[in-house]
Design a binder for these strands. Structure first.
Lengths: 117, 117
DNA sequence: CCAACTGTTCCAAAATTTTCGAACGGTTGG
DNA sequence: CCAACCGTTCGAAAATTTTGGAACAGTTGG
């Protein structure tokens, strides 16, 4: 009845490390995931790019990187999970960072030119 | 006589890729270098951390990563070189990003806790 | 109860990044 | 002119990250 499948560890805001946050967001796939959360929480299955192109273990690893950096919170919800941005906490720790990063729609990919804007 | 040793390639602002910028700044050594440039241009030799702990080829690679991301401009100056932040261009392309990243003095290192602030 | 479902963790291979010695290439002090 | 300098590039080894299949662990619909 209590909503507790497996609670994952989330760092406290004072333990957020700037370079870890930047690193987590420096991957196109992870940045895309973070951008999808701007409009509110999402179930993990709904964070997938297109079809089911990306293996679930790979997605899970990306989510772990985002979670350990303090960017997202991953909460159990029945047999699913909810993912949401830790906006307030990130804003307090690194003012302006999230807005600057998630604002532009130019994710791009390392090594390949980006023409999305 | 003309100040031209070897001109390095610098990307145009419209070619800056956000993930590349974030990646370049996600390394503690590179973030530190970028922070040292906030107060104005520096000769490369003056960007060194402490003594001469870091090999020059390693430093050069970090500078290359920063340069190719569009974060710094590396200009020949006699037999030395000047390094400076591309502030205006970065600000135009990714408003608020540089201020958010270079402002806090919490570089930290991946894996190790940071207590600098 | 239990089969199906969701998503994490384990493990190992592939890819990328980091590091640094050595070689090289302009530039200039003397 | 040329030896010393500064810093980049080359090349290869070490370290880290990325990827994904397989196993595992809650949760719940029927």
């Amino acid at each position: 009845m209590s909503g507790s499948s497996r609670e994952l560890a989330h760092p406290a805001p004072e333990d957020f490390v700037l370079t870890d946050v930047l690193f987590a967001l420096s991957d196109p796939a992870r940045l895309t995931i973070a951008r999808q959360l701007v409009n509110g929480p999402l179930e993990i299955a709904d964070c997938r790019p297109a079809d089911g192109e990306i293996p679930k273990s790979t997605l899970s690893h990306h989510l772990k990187t985002l979670r350990e950096a303090g960017i997202v919170c991953n909460l159990p919800n029945g047999r699913r999970r909810y993912l949401h941005l830790r906006r307030e906490e990130l804003e307090r720790r690194f003012p302006g960072l999230l807005d600057a990063v998630l604002g532009p729609a130019s994710a791009g990919r390392r090594g390949k030119p980006d023409h999305s804007q």
